[in-house]
Design a protein around this nucleic acid. Structure first.
Lengths: 195, 195
DNA sequence: TCAGACCCTGACCGATCGGTCAGATGGAAG
DNA sequence: CTTCCATCTGACCGATCGGTCAGGGTCTGA
């Protein structure tokens, strides 16, 4: 019996993740979470300072990976930035499917909370990288469509195996991203220094 | 002075659209809307039976266009279905940018309301058409990524002119959709009957 | 002048929200 | 046995939500 220690903290976290996925952060009350765990609402607030702290702890692992992806992107330009951004974000989105589903739709409001400071800037940089740091509207639009679409797909296709979903999304991303380096019909770019 | 008639009804509608766009349907209270209009909350509820009716009236034009697109799609298969779906949805999304922004994220919950019955089925058919009615996971995933991404882009890029946004999105959609008819590298499809 | 339709409002309602708090429980340490 | 601490709870709080209702003001047509 490993179940000697009840681990209420973890149970609350898991229940919150499930509820947030279905009804969203705002749409889930502390009462709902307590009911699913089988404890009182006061117990939930004993283990977590407040509702926001619960969400923050739920998102922490995904945010850490997002930060490390942001680090990998510094200095990259053109097609290299696009490829790393695409691969990194698809990986992240597939791996943290549930976390992505939690944020679904409430992204802008939730990012205002202090626990998620700078996440907006990171995702802006990610979008910029996926656009190959181009300022052409087409490239910027394609990058946003991909980031939003990939998030939604990961939240939606909960039944598809990780590997299959990752491959499909990466293939799609490479096909959909607006090319900036190699075969540009208009003019060759002059800002690529390496490779 | 055309402003003789105050048209409170229309003002409430416009204020609600603005507020819903920023803070979402759930995140906007009737009090908020009344404050922006400069009337009492009771006045809002005098002009609209309830909050849901307000949303329904706001969405009505967009929903009608969506229904007509659904009609156009019946009977189409393969690449033809994909092209009509892509063009029709991009048109709709660009034209009803604000309405799309209102639904942002709260799509699944809002669709449960009786005023939006069958909208889920219609958008499922639209997604299916964009996938060329293929059951390959790659095609289904690409279709969902595109629909979700295009919606998000239309809600986000409020400053880009209609024509430019439409062109960029349509170009992207044609590039990103998984091909089902014409130049399939693996094998020629046998289910296309016409053209 | 008066009746009635229309428009609008303040006061109020029950429900639910996130959050607080004093106190009950129970096991470990002295 | 007593003390202490972590865990947990019911009762309660103020705020806000969507929605109701009786009534006041204004305009119009008979």
């Amino acid at each position: 019996m490993v179940r000697a220690v009840p681990d209420t903290h973890g149970e609350i976290l898991a229940a919150a993740a499930r509820q947030f996925t279905v009804t969203g952060y705002r749409g889930t009350s502390l009462q709902d979470i307590a009911r699913e765990v089988g404890c009182s609402k006061a117990t939930v607030l004993y283990h977590f300072a407040n509702k926001e702290a619960l969400l923050a702890e739920l998102m922490a692992p995904a945010i850490e990976v997002l930060r490390s992806l942001d680090d990998q992107l510094t200095g990259l330009t053109g097609a290299a930035a696009q490829e790393v951004a695409a691969q990194g974000f698809v990986d992240l989105a597939v791996r943290f499917r549930q976390e992505i589903a939690v944020l679904r739709g409430e992204f802008p409001e939730l990012l205002c909370q202090p626990a998620f400071a700078h996440i907006q800037e990171i995702s802006d940089r990610l979008r910029d990288a996926l656009a190959g740091h181009s300022d052409r509207p087409g490239a910027r639009i394609a990058a946003l469509v991909l980031l939003a679409g990939i998030s939604e797909a990961c939240a939606e296709f909960a039944d598809i195996p990780d590997d299959e979903l990752r491959l499909a999304l990466l293939t799609l991303a490479r096909r959909a991203v607006e090319p900036v380096d190699a075969p540009l019909p208009h003019q060759p770019t002059t800002e690529d220094k390496d490779s």
